[in-house]
Lab assay of single mutants.
Amino acid sequence: IDAAQIVDEALEQGITLFVVNNRLQYETSRDSIPTELLNKWKQHKQELIDFLNQLD
């Protein structure tokens, strides 16, 4: 699994991931984030931050 897949998966569930001051953040209108997704974010945090920083 790679960062792009995780970002896409989040988007499919209505969650936008982004980076502020090198910290992973998210925006969503959902009430809660699925635990499975949160765990993936934690496991791949640095990859996600690097990936999202490249997009900007």
Rank of each mutant, 00 (worst) to 15 (best):
Y26T: 03
V19W: 03
I6Q: 02
I15H: 04
Y26P: 02
L38Y: 07
E12A: 14
W41D: 00
Q13P: 00
I49M: 06
L37V: 04
T16L: 14
L38F: 07
F51W: 09
H44I: 05
V20L: 09
D56P: 13
L55Y: 12
D8S: 15
D56M: 13
V20K: 13
Q13E: 08
Q5G: 13
A10N: 01
N22H: 07
K42E: 14
Q13T: 04
V19G: 01
E12P: 01
Q46V: 07
K40D: 03
A4L: 06
T28E: 02
S29R: 10
E27K: 14
I33W: 03
L38V: 08
I49L: 06
L52F: 08
S29Y: 09
L55D: 07
A4G: 09
S32A: 10
K42R: 12
K40M: 10
S32D: 08
E12Q: 14
S29I: 08
Q13H: 14
Q54T: 12
I33L: 06
D31S: 11
L52D: 00
I1W: 11
I33M: 04
D50M: 09
W41Q: 00
H44T: 04
I1P: 09
E12D: 08
I6L: 12
N53F: 06
V19D: 02
T16C: 15
A4H: 13
Q25Y: 15
V19R: 01
Q46Y: 07
D2G: 09
I33A: 04
E47I: 14
N39S: 10
Q25R: 12
I33Y: 02
H44K: 04
T35G: 10
N21F: 06
L37K: 02
E27D: 08
I49E: 04
K42N: 13
A10D: 01
L11C: 14
P34A: 05
F51N: 01
E47T: 08
A4Q: 12
Y26R: 01
N39Y: 09
F18V: 13
A3P: 13
Q13M: 15
Q54E: 10
A3R: 02
Q25L: 14
I15P: 00
I6N: 01
G14P: 00
V7E: 01
L52P: 00
H44A: 07
Q43N: 10
L24G: 01
K45V: 13
V7C: 05
A3D: 01
N39I: 12
T16V: 13
N53W: 06
K45H: 13
E27A: 13
R30W: 06
V19T: 06
A4N: 06
D50L: 08
K42H: 13
A4I: 05
I15T: 02
S32K: 08
L24C: 04
A4E: 07
L52H: 00
E9Y: 05
I1M: 12
N53M: 13
V19E: 03
Q43C: 07
Q54W: 11
A10S: 04
I6P: 00
T16F: 14
T28C: 05
I6W: 06
E36C: 06
D2E: 10
T35V: 14
S29P: 06
N53Q: 10
T28G: 05
Q5E: 08
L55R: 15
D31W: 04
I15F: 08
G14Y: 04
I1H: 09
S29M: 11
I15M: 02
D56Y: 11
R23F: 11
L38G: 03
I15D: 01
T35I: 14
I6H: 01
Y26W: 15
L52C: 02
W41T: 03
I6M: 12
N53A: 09
F51T: 01
N22R: 04
I6V: 06
D50T: 09
Q54G: 13
R30K: 09
H44N: 07
N53K: 13
A10W: 02
L38M: 10
N39M: 12
D8V: 13
Q54H: 11
L24I: 06
E27V: 14
L24P: 01
N39A: 14
D50F: 09
N21M: 07
